[in-house]
Amino acid sequence: MLRIGKIPIAVFALFIIAFPWVTHEIPSIEHYTDIMIFAGIYCLITMGLSLLMGYTGQISIGHAAFYGIGAYTSAILTAQYGLNPWPCIIVGMAISAVIAVLVGAPSLKLKGHYLAMATLAFGIIVYIIFNEEAAWTGGPDGMTGIPGLSLFGFEFDSVKKYYYLVWIFVFAAFIFTVNIIQSGIGRALRAIHVSEPAASAMGVDISRFKILVFVYSAVLASLAGSLYAHYLNFINPSTFDLFFSIKLLIMIALGGMYNIWGAIIGAGLITFLSYEWLYYFQEYEVIVYGAILLLVTIFFPKGLVGVPGIVKGWFRE
C-alpha cells in the first residue's frame, strides 16, 4: 500500500537530469535551473520533515534553526578558519544531531505536542544568536566570503554543475528515506502515528524512534543549510527566521505530508512561487501562503498527492 514504485522514481530522475538542458533552450525560463537548486535544497529539509510529521506525527516548528546551524557552521569554519568545506558540512551535521537530541529528547519523552513548542522556542533562540553573536556570525549583516565547493579539483562553479551536485544529494537522501519508510523502522513510525499504546505493546520504543527521526530530519536540514551557504557564498540571519520554518510546513502541507512525494512537490511549488510567480505580490506574498494553507487543509487534507484519490472517488460515485 505504501510501496514507492520504481517507475515514478525513474521518471523523476529523468526529469531532473533533463531539466537544465531543456530550460536552457527557452530564454524566458533559462534561470529556472538556478531556482531548482533552491528547490532541491528545500527538498532535503522537507523529506526529513515528511518522515517526522507525516509518517511519525511529530510537529517541528524549528527546522529553520537546523538549516541555519548547517549554514553557519560551514560559513564560520570555511570563511574564518579556511578549512576545507566538506568536513565542515559533516561537522555541521554532527552539531545539528547533538542539538536535536538535546532539544528533542526531553520533549519527545512526553506525550502530546511538546516538540512543537520546544522547537518553536528553539528556533527563535537560534535566530537571536545568529543576530547577536556578531563576532562569529557577522550579526544582521551576515557573512561573506564563503567558498564554493570543489571535489578532487573539480569546481562546482556554474549553476548547472551546482544543480547536479545538489540533486545528487537530494536523490541519495530520497532513496535513503524511501528505504527507511519501507523497512521495519518505517512500520514502527507509522504505528506510532496511529496508536502509541499499540505500538509500545508490540515492543516499539516510542521515544527512541521519535528522537531518531527528529535527529535524521535535523541532519538533513543542516546539510541543506551548508549547500545553501556554499552556493550563495553569503548568508544572513533573515534566511533562518521563524517564517522560514512555517514556510517549510506550508511546503509539506501543500504537497501532502503523508507521502514522501508530497515533500518534493510541495518544496518545488513553493520555491517557484516565492522566487518567481509571486514576485509581483512582494510583501503580500504572505497572504497567498496563508490562503494556500487554508485551502489545502479544508479541501485537500492529504495535499496535492491526495488529489488523484479524491478525483477517483468522484468518478466512483
Binding site: 500500500m1 505504501l2 521495519g184 512500520r187 514502527a188 507509522r190 504505528a191 502515528h193 496511529v194 496508536s195 499499540a198 505500538a199 508490540m202 515492543g203 516499539v204
Partner: peptide, 15 residues
C-alpha cells in the same frame, strides 16, 4: 494500524 496492510500489521508484531 489501520493505514497498514494486514501483513504489515503482523510484521510489526515481529518487532
Amino acid at each position: 494500524f489501520g493505514n497498514m496492510t494486514v501483513l504489515e500489521n503482523v510484521m510489526l508484531g515481529c518487532h
